[in-house]
Amino acid sequence: MAVNKGTFRVKKGMAEMQKGGVIMDVVNPEQAKIAEASGAVAVMALEKVPADIRVSGGVARMADPEIISAIMEAVTIPVMAKCRIGHQAEAQILEFLGVDYIDESEVLTPADEKYHINKHKFTVPFVCGARDLGEALRRIGEGAAMIRTKGEPGTGNVVEAVRHLRQVMAQIRLVENAPEEELMTIARELGAPYEQLREVKAQGKLPVVNFAAGGVATPADAALMMQLGADGVFVGSGIFKAHDPQKRARAIVEATLHFDDPEVLAKVSRKLGEAMAGIDMAMLTDADRMQIRGA
């Protein structure tokens, strides 16, 4: 009997199983266990959360395999890990380690300023960041099986995540309503692969799951992203940079489910302690802005 591994259906299907969920950044097994017990659908194994990457500066690379393996052993939920944009060797290492999803991420310092990884060649699925529909469809064209809007990682400021998700959603509506003969021109304008764009028109949505990321720090932030049409949320620094990570993690999971119920949102937002400090976008120079890496 033929057994097919790494088909696009099982890659994309894996992300579909994560819908409605929260994926949390963790840097050690203890945090991973807190995330799992709080109801996270997956963890992102890192050496440093984005907020700390900002502070320490320098080149941010794939985490030490020792840390990733320790986190994989600590939990039964899926474990994701990041490689640098265009760094296929890091991705090969992550695939060898057995991580369940690879994030080719702008949070790390890009290894290639022009090209992304050919993700079709891997058995393990990839998630990539995007700020608009063209970028999302280019990544899907390269083989990404999941998209996350980029936001601005490590800022605890949801404004960029909102901008990017609204942009993607507005462009999907535009494509959906456009007559067939305009699609090629729209494809050229967006820099999107034509075939992928046709899929968007046919389905009225991205052809893969789309999570929100980059600046989500509170239960209300998560609820907002779900209201704007995200399939789920990534929370990076927002949980373990906060005063009471466990309580906040649980609250964000519940807020993601009950995103349209202010009563539940009010309840879970009570007495969470201090959120991460956060950064105003006006304080960031272009060099600080992770979102412009790898378009």
């Binding site: 057994v3 097919n4 591994k5 899926p78 057995g98 991580v99």
Partner: peptide
């Protein structure tokens, strides 16, 4: 038994 066939890279389709 959960995840009994292995991690995501072992996920598969079969008739």
């Amino acid at each position: 038994k959960r995840n009994a066939y292995g991690r995501q890279r072992e996920s598969f389709e079969a008739d």
